[in-house]
């Protein structure tokens, strides 16, 4: 077992910059990130801090390869080597996401009609686990996040915001990725469910996962963060 907070950088950025050019608004360019140097080690949780609009979610999405970096590097430890997400080809990014890099967004996006249990279980079947094993693990994970068994057979489309977020969390945590990106994991959860998520984050750290999170809830942030990574808005930094 990997000891908590080792000196293995699992994820680091070098001079990362990202902006948006809005062609529908006459090519208006909005710089969001510049010179970002973030490192996350195995077994620690780094929480991004900064006011709304500072680019926290943009950074998260860039780390996941969902947004494309303009310049700089995003180095992810994958299969004992570092791979640069900023320049990797699509299939390499998919392989990194599959094995190494998990992401829990604030929104659940799934194919309509699939029962909640399978939405979670498919994460494991896609990793070669048997249908029975995957369903058993998914059931346990959903129950742990207080999604009652009577809902497991229903597609999550009709669930409340909090329930959908917990389905998303179940999907995010069940694969046990070595790196986890959490964007507001407790935003629409009640106190009891926030506590479950805090425990799950601690367990992930104990197994050696590196976690980068955005978390506005001060209590949750204080319970999970090993350190904060300040992200000042570019206008002020300039």
């Amino acid at each position: 077992m990997i000891p908590p907070v080792t000196q293995t950088p699992m994820l680091r950025t070098e001079a990362l910059a990202k902006g948006f050019t809005l062609h529908l608004r006459d090519g208006l360019h909005i710089p969001v990130l510049a010179g970002v140097e973030l490192t996350a080690y195995a077994g620690e949780c780094v929480v991004l801090s900064g006011p709304s609009g500072a680019g926290k979610s943009t950074l998260m999405r860039a780390l996941y390869g969902n947004y494309r970096a303009d310049s700089g590097r995003i180095l992810v430890r994958h299969r004992h080597a570092e791979i640069d997400i900023a320049t990797a080809d699509p299939r390499a990014i998919l392989a990194v996401r599959h094995e190494t890099l998990g992401y829990v967004s604030q929104f659940l996006r799934v194919v309509p009609r699939i029962p909640t249990l399978d939405v979670v279980a498919e994460v494991l079947t896609a990793r070669g686990r048997s249908q029975e094993e995957a369903r058993a693990a998914a059931t346990a994970m959903l129950l742990r996040l207080n999604i009652p068994a009577r809902l497991h057979g229903l597609p999550p489309a009709t669930f409340s915001g909090g329930e959908q977020q917990r389905v998303n969390l179940a999907r995010g945590f069940i694969a046990e990725h070595p790196i986890l990106l959490l964007d507001e994991p407790t935003a629409s959860l009640d106190a009891a469910n926030r506590d479950v998520v805090v425990t799950m984050v601690r367990e992930a750290k104990t197994r050696g996962a590196a976690i980068v999170a955005i978390c506005h809830d001060a209590e949750v942030r204080d319970s999970i963060a090993d350190r904060l990574f300040p992200l000042p808005p570019l206008q002020e930094a300039a």
């Binding site: 948006f20 999405r61 390869g65 969902n66 947004y67 494309r68 699509p90 990014i93 998919l94």
Partner: peptide, 8 residues
């Protein structure tokens, strides 16, 4: 990547 092209 589909999500990259559609989100960014």
């Amino acid at each position: 990547l589909t999500d990259q092209v559609l989100d960014d």
